[in-house]
Design a protein around this nucleic acid. Structure first.
Length: 268
DNA sequence: ACACTAACCTGCAAGC
DNA sequence: TGCTTGCAGGTTAGTG
Protein backbone atom coordinates (compact mmCIF):
# COMPACT_ATOMS: atom_id res chain seq x y z
CA UNK A 1 0.00 0.00 0.00
CA UNK A 2 2.59 2.51 0.86
CA UNK A 3 4.37 4.83 -1.44
CA UNK A 4 5.54 8.21 -0.25
CA UNK A 5 2.07 9.85 -0.19
CA UNK A 6 0.67 6.97 1.86
CA UNK A 7 3.55 7.22 4.34
CA UNK A 8 3.09 10.99 4.58
CA UNK A 9 -0.66 10.47 5.10
CA UNK A 10 0.08 7.95 7.84
CA UNK A 11 2.50 10.31 9.53
CA UNK A 12 -0.03 13.14 9.57
CA UNK A 13 -2.67 10.75 10.86
CA UNK A 14 -0.77 9.42 13.86
CA UNK A 15 1.33 12.47 14.79
CA UNK A 16 -1.36 14.34 16.76
CA UNK A 17 -2.03 11.27 18.90
CA UNK A 18 1.54 10.38 19.83
CA UNK A 19 3.90 13.36 19.45
CA UNK A 20 4.94 14.62 22.89
CA UNK A 21 3.54 11.52 24.60
CA UNK A 22 5.44 9.04 26.75
CA UNK A 23 5.65 5.43 25.59
CA UNK A 24 4.04 3.47 28.41
CA UNK A 25 4.29 0.02 26.95
CA UNK A 26 5.36 -1.73 23.75
CA UNK A 27 4.25 -5.24 22.90
CA UNK A 28 5.85 -7.16 20.05
CA UNK A 29 3.58 -10.01 18.95
CA UNK A 30 5.61 -10.93 15.88
CA UNK A 31 9.18 -9.69 15.70
CA UNK A 32 10.09 -11.46 12.49
CA UNK A 33 9.84 -8.60 10.03
CA UNK A 34 12.16 -7.50 7.22
CA UNK A 35 14.82 -7.28 9.90
CA UNK A 36 14.24 -8.79 13.35
CA UNK A 37 12.72 -6.40 15.86
CA UNK A 38 15.15 -5.73 18.71
CA UNK A 39 14.41 -8.31 21.38
CA UNK A 40 14.87 -5.66 24.06
CA UNK A 41 12.76 -3.02 22.32
CA UNK A 42 10.34 -2.61 25.21
CA UNK A 43 12.94 -2.03 27.89
CA UNK A 44 14.91 0.25 25.57
CA UNK A 45 12.08 2.67 24.76
CA UNK A 46 9.41 2.39 27.45
CA UNK A 47 9.34 5.56 29.52
CA UNK A 48 10.80 7.73 26.75
CA UNK A 49 8.90 10.60 25.18
CA UNK A 50 8.30 10.70 21.42
CA UNK A 51 9.65 14.17 20.80
CA UNK A 52 9.17 14.38 17.04
CA UNK A 53 7.86 12.47 14.02
CA UNK A 54 9.29 12.81 10.55
CA UNK A 55 9.52 11.07 7.20
CA UNK A 56 12.55 10.31 5.04
CA UNK A 57 11.83 8.54 1.75
CA UNK A 58 9.22 5.92 2.69
CA UNK A 59 10.53 5.61 6.23
CA UNK A 60 8.79 7.03 9.28
CA UNK A 61 11.13 8.24 11.99
CA UNK A 62 9.96 8.48 15.59
CA UNK A 63 12.47 10.56 17.52
CA UNK A 64 12.77 9.65 21.20
CA UNK A 65 14.89 11.22 23.90
CA UNK A 66 17.78 8.77 23.54
CA UNK A 67 17.46 7.44 20.00
CA UNK A 68 14.89 6.82 17.34
CA UNK A 69 12.63 4.16 15.90
CA UNK A 70 12.65 3.74 12.12
CA UNK A 71 9.46 2.25 10.69
CA UNK A 72 8.87 1.09 7.13
CA UNK A 73 5.51 -0.16 5.92
CA UNK A 74 6.89 -2.45 3.22
CA UNK A 75 4.25 -3.55 0.71
CA UNK A 76 1.35 -4.21 3.03
CA UNK A 77 2.00 -2.35 6.27
CA UNK A 78 -0.09 0.23 8.07
CA UNK A 79 -0.08 2.14 11.35
CA UNK A 80 -3.31 2.98 13.08
CA UNK A 81 -4.40 4.71 16.25
CA UNK A 82 -6.90 2.56 18.11
CA UNK A 83 -8.52 2.51 21.51
CA UNK A 84 -6.82 0.28 24.03
CA UNK A 85 -9.65 -2.25 24.12
CA UNK A 86 -9.81 -2.72 20.33
CA UNK A 87 -9.63 -6.37 19.33
CA UNK A 88 -6.19 -7.40 18.08
CA UNK A 89 -6.33 -8.35 14.40
CA UNK A 90 -4.36 -11.03 12.66
CA UNK A 91 -1.01 -9.54 11.53
CA UNK A 92 -1.04 -6.81 14.20
CA UNK A 93 2.64 -7.34 14.98
CA UNK A 94 3.51 -4.43 17.27
CA UNK A 95 1.45 -2.20 19.53
CA UNK A 96 2.57 0.84 21.44
CA UNK A 97 0.55 2.29 24.30
CA UNK A 98 1.00 6.00 24.97
CA UNK A 99 0.56 8.03 28.13
CA UNK A 100 -2.55 9.75 26.75
CA UNK A 101 -4.36 6.44 26.27
CA UNK A 102 -3.74 6.19 22.52
CA UNK A 103 -2.48 2.90 21.14
CA UNK A 104 -0.56 2.58 17.86
CA UNK A 105 -0.86 -0.72 16.05
CA UNK A 106 1.54 -1.86 13.32
CA UNK A 107 -0.25 -4.21 10.93
CA UNK A 108 1.66 -5.92 8.11
CA UNK A 109 0.47 -9.20 6.56
CA UNK A 110 3.49 -9.69 4.31
CA UNK A 111 6.03 -8.58 6.91
CA UNK A 112 8.21 -6.70 4.43
CA UNK A 113 8.12 -3.73 6.77
CA UNK A 114 10.48 -3.00 9.65
CA UNK A 115 10.56 -1.41 13.11
CA UNK A 116 14.13 -0.63 14.10
CA UNK A 117 15.61 1.07 17.16
CA UNK A 118 18.91 2.94 17.10
CA UNK A 119 20.63 5.31 19.48
CA UNK A 120 22.40 6.91 16.53
CA UNK A 121 22.00 7.18 12.77
CA UNK A 122 20.09 4.49 10.91
CA UNK A 123 22.05 2.62 8.27
CA UNK A 124 19.00 2.44 6.03
CA UNK A 125 19.05 6.21 5.58
CA UNK A 126 22.74 6.50 4.80
CA UNK A 127 22.79 6.40 1.01
CA UNK A 128 19.45 7.77 -0.08
CA UNK A 129 18.95 10.26 -2.90
CA UNK A 130 17.09 13.56 -2.45
CA UNK A 131 13.46 13.95 -1.47
CA UNK A 132 11.31 14.30 -4.60
CA UNK A 133 9.50 17.37 -3.27
CA UNK A 134 12.73 19.18 -2.42
CA UNK A 135 14.63 21.58 -4.67
CA UNK A 136 17.56 19.17 -4.70
CA UNK A 137 15.50 16.99 -7.00
CA UNK A 138 14.98 18.41 -10.47
CA UNK A 139 15.26 17.64 -14.17
CA UNK A 140 18.91 18.56 -14.29
CA UNK A 141 19.74 15.89 -11.74
CA UNK A 142 17.81 13.28 -13.72
CA UNK A 143 19.54 14.32 -16.91
CA UNK A 144 23.04 14.33 -15.47
CA UNK A 145 22.75 11.00 -13.65
CA UNK A 146 21.16 9.26 -16.62
CA UNK A 147 23.86 9.93 -19.22
CA UNK A 148 25.16 6.64 -20.65
CA UNK A 149 22.68 4.70 -18.53
CA UNK A 150 20.97 1.90 -20.45
CA UNK A 151 18.36 1.10 -17.84
CA UNK A 152 14.75 1.95 -18.73
CA UNK A 153 13.55 5.29 -17.43
CA UNK A 154 10.90 3.80 -15.14
CA UNK A 155 13.25 1.69 -12.98
CA UNK A 156 15.68 4.64 -13.20
CA UNK A 157 13.31 7.04 -11.45
CA UNK A 158 12.37 4.28 -8.97
CA UNK A 159 16.03 3.95 -7.93
CA UNK A 160 16.43 5.36 -4.42
CA UNK A 161 19.91 6.66 -5.18
CA UNK A 162 18.48 8.85 -7.95
CA UNK A 163 15.44 10.10 -6.04
CA UNK A 164 13.53 8.55 -3.15
CA UNK A 165 9.85 7.88 -2.74
CA UNK A 166 8.83 7.18 -6.34
CA UNK A 167 7.17 3.77 -6.40
CA UNK A 168 5.35 1.81 -9.06
CA UNK A 169 2.10 3.76 -8.94
CA UNK A 170 3.46 7.27 -9.11
CA UNK A 171 6.30 6.42 -11.50
CA UNK A 172 3.69 5.09 -13.92
CA UNK A 173 1.46 8.13 -13.50
CA UNK A 174 4.28 10.68 -13.83
CA UNK A 175 5.55 9.04 -17.02
CA UNK A 176 2.07 9.13 -18.50
CA UNK A 177 1.66 12.81 -17.66
CA UNK A 178 5.05 13.45 -19.25
CA UNK A 179 4.32 11.48 -22.42
CA UNK A 180 7.39 9.27 -21.91
CA UNK A 181 7.35 5.52 -22.53
CA UNK A 182 8.41 3.66 -19.37
CA UNK A 183 10.75 1.40 -21.36
CA UNK A 184 12.67 4.21 -23.05
CA UNK A 185 16.36 4.12 -22.15
CA UNK A 186 17.13 6.61 -19.39
CA UNK A 187 20.23 7.81 -21.24
CA UNK A 188 18.19 8.58 -24.31
CA UNK A 189 15.98 11.34 -22.91
CA UNK A 190 16.59 15.07 -23.34
CA UNK A 191 17.09 17.60 -20.58
CA UNK A 192 13.87 19.31 -21.57
CA UNK A 193 11.86 16.11 -21.14
CA UNK A 194 13.54 15.36 -17.80
CA UNK A 195 12.61 18.81 -16.57
CA UNK A 196 9.01 18.02 -17.43
CA UNK A 197 9.23 14.60 -15.84
CA UNK A 198 10.64 15.94 -12.58
CA UNK A 199 7.83 18.47 -12.49
CA UNK A 200 5.22 15.78 -13.01
CA UNK A 201 6.74 13.56 -10.32
CA UNK A 202 6.42 16.43 -7.86
CA UNK A 203 2.93 17.22 -9.11
CA UNK A 204 1.59 13.68 -8.86
CA UNK A 205 3.08 13.08 -5.40
CA UNK A 206 1.80 16.39 -4.06
CA UNK A 207 -1.66 15.75 -5.46
CA UNK A 208 -1.76 12.28 -3.91
CA UNK A 209 -0.76 13.66 -0.51
CA UNK A 210 -3.55 16.22 -0.68
CA UNK A 211 -6.04 13.44 -1.39
CA UNK A 212 -4.78 11.26 1.44
CA UNK A 213 -2.89 8.77 -0.70
CA UNK A 214 -4.05 5.98 -2.96
CA UNK A 215 -6.15 3.23 -1.48
CA UNK A 216 -5.49 -0.14 -3.08
CA UNK A 217 -7.01 -3.10 -1.31
CA UNK A 218 -7.00 -1.98 2.31
CA UNK A 219 -4.84 1.10 2.70
CA UNK A 220 -6.10 3.36 5.47
CA UNK A 221 -4.51 6.36 7.13
CA UNK A 222 -3.73 6.57 10.83
CA UNK A 223 -7.39 7.00 11.61
CA UNK A 224 -8.58 4.08 9.53
CA UNK A 225 -9.82 6.21 6.63
CA UNK A 226 -9.10 5.46 2.94
CA UNK A 227 -7.23 7.67 0.46
CA UNK A 228 -8.87 9.03 -2.64
CA UNK A 229 -6.09 9.40 -5.20
CA UNK A 230 -7.08 6.09 -6.78
CA UNK A 231 -9.85 7.96 -8.57
CA UNK A 232 -7.15 9.99 -10.31
CA UNK A 233 -5.00 7.14 -11.63
CA UNK A 234 -4.69 7.32 -15.42
CA UNK A 235 -2.63 4.18 -16.14
CA UNK A 236 -1.65 2.26 -12.99
CA UNK A 237 -3.74 -0.89 -12.72
CA UNK A 238 -5.56 -0.11 -15.99
CA UNK A 239 -3.78 -2.39 -18.48
CA UNK A 240 -6.11 -3.27 -21.38
CA UNK A 241 -8.45 -0.39 -20.60
CA UNK A 242 -8.85 2.80 -22.62
CA UNK A 243 -6.41 5.70 -22.42
CA UNK A 244 -8.07 8.67 -20.73
CA UNK A 245 -6.54 10.98 -23.35
CA UNK A 246 -6.72 9.20 -26.74
CA UNK A 247 -9.06 6.28 -25.96
CA UNK A 248 -6.54 3.79 -27.33
CA UNK A 249 -5.86 0.56 -25.42
CA UNK A 250 -3.30 0.77 -22.63
CA UNK A 251 -0.40 -1.69 -22.86
CA UNK A 252 1.08 -3.62 -19.96
CA UNK A 253 4.70 -4.78 -19.86
CA UNK A 254 7.20 -5.88 -17.21
CA UNK A 255 10.15 -3.70 -16.31
CA UNK A 256 12.43 -4.83 -13.53
CA UNK A 257 9.77 -7.34 -12.46
CA UNK A 258 7.23 -4.58 -11.99
CA UNK A 259 4.16 -4.30 -14.14
CA UNK A 260 4.15 -1.13 -16.17
CA UNK A 261 1.11 0.25 -17.92
CA UNK A 262 1.34 2.93 -20.59
CA UNK A 263 -0.28 4.32 -23.71
CA UNK A 264 1.81 3.57 -26.78
CA UNK A 265 0.24 6.49 -28.64
CA UNK A 266 0.55 9.18 -25.95
CA UNK A 267 3.90 8.02 -24.56
CA UNK A 268 7.00 7.95 -26.75
C1' DA B 1 29.75 0.89 -11.78
C1' DC B 2 25.99 -1.19 -13.96
C1' DA B 3 22.18 -4.43 -15.35
C1' DC B 4 19.49 -7.88 -13.97
C1' DT B 5 17.38 -11.66 -10.97
C1' DA B 6 15.80 -13.85 -6.90
C1' DA B 7 14.24 -13.42 -2.47
C1' DC B 8 11.62 -12.09 1.69
C1' DC B 9 5.80 -13.33 2.98
C1' DT B 10 0.71 -13.56 2.92
C1' DG B 11 -3.68 -12.90 0.65
C1' DC B 12 -6.47 -12.69 -3.12
C1' DA B 13 -8.30 -13.40 -7.77
C1' DA B 14 -8.34 -15.94 -11.87
C1' DG B 15 -8.16 -20.19 -14.24
C1' DC B 16 -8.85 -25.02 -14.60
C1' DT C 1 -16.16 -26.68 -4.81
C1' DG C 2 -11.28 -27.05 -4.57
C1' DC C 3 -6.72 -26.87 -6.15
C1' DT C 4 -2.92 -24.35 -8.58
C1' DT C 5 -0.89 -20.35 -10.39
C1' DG C 6 0.33 -15.70 -10.64
C1' DC C 7 0.41 -11.27 -8.94
C1' DA C 8 0.54 -7.30 -5.45
C1' DG C 9 2.24 -0.71 -2.93
C1' DG C 10 9.34 -2.27 -1.59
C1' DT C 11 13.96 -3.10 -0.94
C1' DT C 12 18.18 -5.77 -0.56
C1' DA C 13 21.47 -9.31 -1.72
C1' DG C 14 23.59 -11.74 -5.10
C1' DT C 15 25.05 -12.78 -9.89
C1' DG C 16 27.67 -11.77 -14.07
Amino acid sequence: MPELPEVETTLRGIEPAIAGQVIRRIKVHQGSLRWPVNANLAQLVEGQTITHLSRRAKYLLMQLEHGSMLVHLGMSGSLRIVQANTQLRKHDHIEMQMSNGSTVRFHDPRRFGCWLWSEGAHQQLAHLGPEPLSEDFNGHRLYQLSRKRKVAVKPFIMDNKIVVGVGNIYASEALFRSGIRPDRGAGNISLQRYIELAGHIKEVLAAAIVQGGTTLRDFVNGNGEPGYFQQTLAVYGRGGEHCVACKGLLKEIKLGQRSSVFCARCQR
